[in-house]
């Protein structure tokens, strides 16, 4: 089931050349013998939220570093806004904003000073700089914290400050490498709001994440990456439709007996075992089908006891599992 899908693109459609802001062709990067990025190609459209989704070590950060000109890839072509990034890494510095995976803030400076420092580095004239600092702090809802030392900000506030800082140069594209890593659910939702707001102002967003929910909520298009390769891409909806079918989780002890009985039904596509029972992939909606399964198991002699039932729409998690054969686990995250 897994082996037949190596790289699939679901209804990409024709790319409108003028709408492309980033195009990557055959990107390869090796660290010694280890191939971190293995022949990746994709395009980012102007104005969209683009998401690179995959577990840690999939090669997402390496890809970003190559895209922003921080790293010279082993081979491949990268064009950003018409600029050849590999040949002219200096030229893209002005048109991109980046929020790195790790928090990069001077712990001893205030919110205002951090913004001021960034603006000065980019030589933004004083008046324009100060105007922009206020505007952006307003946008990320930090204007009440201007004189706070960054060390005393919460994790979510630090992230928002970093987003505001990256926007100071009015980048055409903003790269966010795991923007909600390590945040609590509340902080995460706030960041999502900011990302949407910034995107509505017209900035293209390039997002890497290993949170399925994040890609699902935010991204216009998702590219799933694992072991340095892009496995599948498309809108979150299309990717889920690809699996299409609901899944019923049956919690029971006698897995083998239940499996034998259920394998006869034609509305069941696949039965997968998990530690507490069976995962049943249907080819239709689970709502009418679940009672049928329950009735069948109930009528068996001797009776087959079911401890619990759960119906689930496929999520991007399942898409990932389907195409990689493994789950993204929180424990992967260092």
């Amino acid at each position: 089931m897994i082996s037949d899908v190596n790289s699939v693109s679901i209804s990409e459609g024709e790319e409108d050349k003028e709408d492309v802001i980033v195009s990557v062709e055959g990107l390869v990067h090796k660290y010694g013998d280890f191939t971190a990025v293995d022949g990746v190609s994709f395009t980012v459209r102007r104005g969209e939220v683009f998401s690179l989704l995959g577990p840690n070590g999939a090669g997402k950060t390496t890809a970003i570093n190559a895209l922003i000109g921080l790293l010279k890839p082993t081979s491949g072509e990268i064009y950003l806004d018409g600029i050849n990034v590999i040949k002219n890494p200096e030229k893209v510095k002005g048109s991109i904003g980046i929020v790195f995976q790790e928090t990069i803030l001077d712990r001893e400076m205030t919110v205002w000073e951090s913004m001021e420092f960034h603006g000065k580095l980019y030589k933004i004239p004083k008046e324009e700089r100060h105007e922009k600092i206020w505007e952006l702090l307003e946008l990320v809802e930090l204007s009440e914290k201007v004189d706070e030392i960054t060390r005393r900000l919460s994790g979510g506030m630090k992230r928002r400050l970093e987003i505001a800082r990256a926007l100071m140069t009015e980048p055409t594209i903003l790269f966010l490498d795991e923007p909600t890593l390590g945040l609590d659910p509340q902080g995460r939702v706030l960041i999502w709001e900011q990302i949407r707001k910034v995107n509505e102002r017209g900035t293209t967003m390039f997002l890497t994440t290993h949170y399925m929910e994040e890609a699902d909520r935010l991204a216009d298009r998702v590219f799933i990456m694992d072991h340095g390769k892009i496995l599948i891409s498309g809108t979150p909806e299309r990717l889920k439709d690809k699996l299409g079918k609901d899944v019923i989780f049956l919690y029971l002890a006698e897995k083998e007996r239940a499996r034998e009985v259920l394998e006869g039904f034609d509305f069941i596509n696949e039965i997968v075992e998990f530690d507490k029972g069976l995962e049943i992939v249907l080819n239709g909606s689970g709502v009418p089908l679940a009672p049928r399964i329950m009735e069948t198991l109930d009528s068996l002699k001797p009776k087959l006891a079911v401890d619990g039932v759960n119906i689930k729409r496929p999520s991007l998690d399942d898409v990932f599992l389907y195409f990689t054969g493994r789950k993204i686990r929180e424990t992967d995250i260092s």
Binding site: I68, L70, K93, G94, I98, F100, E102, T103, I104, L105, D106, R107, H118, L121, Y122, K123
Partner: peptide
Amino acid sequence: EFGLTKEILMSPT
């Protein structure tokens, strides 16, 4: 260590 060299060197400085 805190990555600030990244911020500085990604800028035109």
